[in-house]
């Protein structure tokens, strides 16, 4: 009986829960970045826990490059979020709107910041991967 009432409450509340974080298909690119930021953040916390257990532990050659992708994405997107949250990239409120006005905070300067963050991510990830896959094995 209790299970039945919980079942009913689940549908009556209609909350998306954690699946709501990753429902990005119908929205803009910022929603994809939000989902990716969440996942990379959780993975970094998991790595740091293992790192605390043994500071000398490293996942290995290709896994090191993957760790680089996770960390550099979180860094580059984090810079974009800091800029947006300090109000630098979201533009000014409008006094006059077009009939089908798209939001300035998404499609204004912020889009350039998205491009900047993605380019920064690719550059940093490439440097990290070069170090992990080429330089580190050479150093032994």
């Amino acid at each position: 009986m209790e299970a039945e009432s919980e079942f009913k409450e689940y549908y009556a509340k209609n909350m998306r829960g954690i699946s709501g974080w990753f429902k990005a298909r119908v929205y803009t690119i910022e929603r994809w970045l939000y989902a990716a930021h969440r996942i990379t953040g959780i993975l970094i916390v998991l790595f740091v826990l293992a790192h605390f257990y043994s500071t000398g532990w490293h996942p290995g050659l290709w896994w090191d490059a993957l760790l680089g992708i996770i960390v550099t994405f979180h860094t580059a997107n984090g810079i974009r979020l800091i800029l947006a949250e300090l109000g630098f990239a979201v533009g000014k409120p409008l006094l006059i709107k077009k009939p089908s006005q798209r939001p300035v905070s998404i499609e204004g300067v912020q889009r350039y910041v998205v491009v900047f963050a993605l380019v920064l991510f690719v550059v940093l990830a490439a440097i990290w991967a070069y170090y992990a896959l080429v330089v580190q094995p050479m150093m032994g």
Partner: peptide, 21 residues
Amino acid sequence: HFAASCSDVCPRGVDPAQGIQ
């Protein structure tokens, strides 16, 4: 955390994400 979906779906162009930032 600025997913900006609120501004994307707003039918009146209010841009709440901008307001919050």
